[in-house]
């Protein structure tokens, strides 16, 4: 099963849930950090030296001998990544989305593609966990291609946990697409509830089964519970507010290691996720039978 951990609001504890769940699983699991702008899962795990792989996207390269400066490439490009005024085109690789349009429209077949570096993919190990992190170079703004490349490392048959970036924009969609289930982490505060609603709209649009983890239980009020109750959203786990948890996370330690009394929390979460998965499967079986 491929499970994504996401949240509308940042700082609700996505990474905390992902790493502790992965460790609690005990058997081999792939943990993918898809928050490629600020990957920091490795800070919570004692990892082996990462193997690095450079990731790039295809960007245009013009053969001056063939180009007659007709400017068709520049007129076509939606992203202003290539511009021409009767001379060899000027190319801005950082603007390019890698759609291949300029190459396809060029009447002289003067455009080919070369790879432009966007970041790194780092693979390392920590006990039962294989950690795969994408890391975007500073100043690069296009996360989805790198996220897709990180996800291409998923191995068939091995369970995987994907730590999504916060929010509901394209990088999040790129992460969630194709996963079997989503865990939305929230906190029982007005900000938490507001951002949870946005995230719920998103996963519903993507038609992925999901449940909610309420972190820092006890700090706010019960509006998150009322919302989940009304919408029929299962609450998979509540993590109590405990200052010791905040302190442990601030030091980059795992709850399941440092606070054994809380390791049952993540065992419960695992159990509830499996239950929800079973229910969804039965429901989809019934749907297809009808």
């Amino acid at each position: 099963m491929i499970l994504a951990v996401a949240s509308g609001k940042g700082g609700t504890g996505k990474t905390t849930v992902s790493v502790n769940l992965a460790r609690q699983l005990g058997s081999g699991v792939q943990l993918l950090d898809c928050d490629v702008e600020e990957p920091n899962t490795n800070l919570f795990l004692d990892c082996t030296e990462p193997e690095e792989e450079i990731f790039g996207i295809p960007v245009p390269c013009v053969d001056e001998a063939l180009c007659d400066g007709c400017g068709e490439c520049g007129r076509f490009c939606q992203f202003h990544a290539i511009v021409s005024f009767g001379t060899k085109p000027v190319i801005f690789p950082e603007m390019c989305h890698g759609c291949g349009g300029c190459m396809a429209v060029c009447p002289k077949r003067a455009i080919s593609e070369v790879s432009q570096r966007m970041g790194l993919i780092e693979t390392s190990r920590s006990g039962n966990i294989t950690l795969i992190q994408g890391r975007l170079d500073i100043g690069v703004s296009m996360a989805p291609p790198l996220i897709r490349a990180v996800k291409a490392r998923l191995q068939d048959g091995m369970p995987a946990i994907l730590d999504a970036p916060p929010g509901t924009s394209c990088p999040v969609i790129a992460t969630l697409r194709g996963t079997d289930m989503v865990v939305l982490v929230t906190e029982p505060t007005p900000f938490g509830l507001h951002d949870l609603k946005l995230a719920v709209d998103m996963v519903r649009e993507l038609r992925i089964p999901f449940g909610v983890v309420v972190n820092r239980m006890g700090i706010g009020d019960d509006r998150v519970y009322a919302f989940c109750g009304k919408e029929g959203i299962p609450i998979l786990l509540e993590i109590p507010y405990d200052r010791r948890i905040a302190e442990i996370c601030s030091r980059g330690e795992l709850i399941v290691d440092a606070l054994p009394e809380y390791s049952s929390l993540f065992a419960t979460l695992l159990w509830n996720i499996k239950e929800l998965r079973g229910m969804e499967r039965r429901a989809s079986y019934v749907r297809s039978a009808n």
């Binding site: 076509f76 939606q78 989305h97 349009g101 396809a104 969609i173 697409r177």
Partner: peptide, 11 residues
């Protein structure tokens, strides 16, 4: 949701 808006298919 997946469309990048590049316009290649349209063209």
């Amino acid at each position: 949701v997946s469309c990048e808006g590049c316009g290649v298919c349209v063209r």
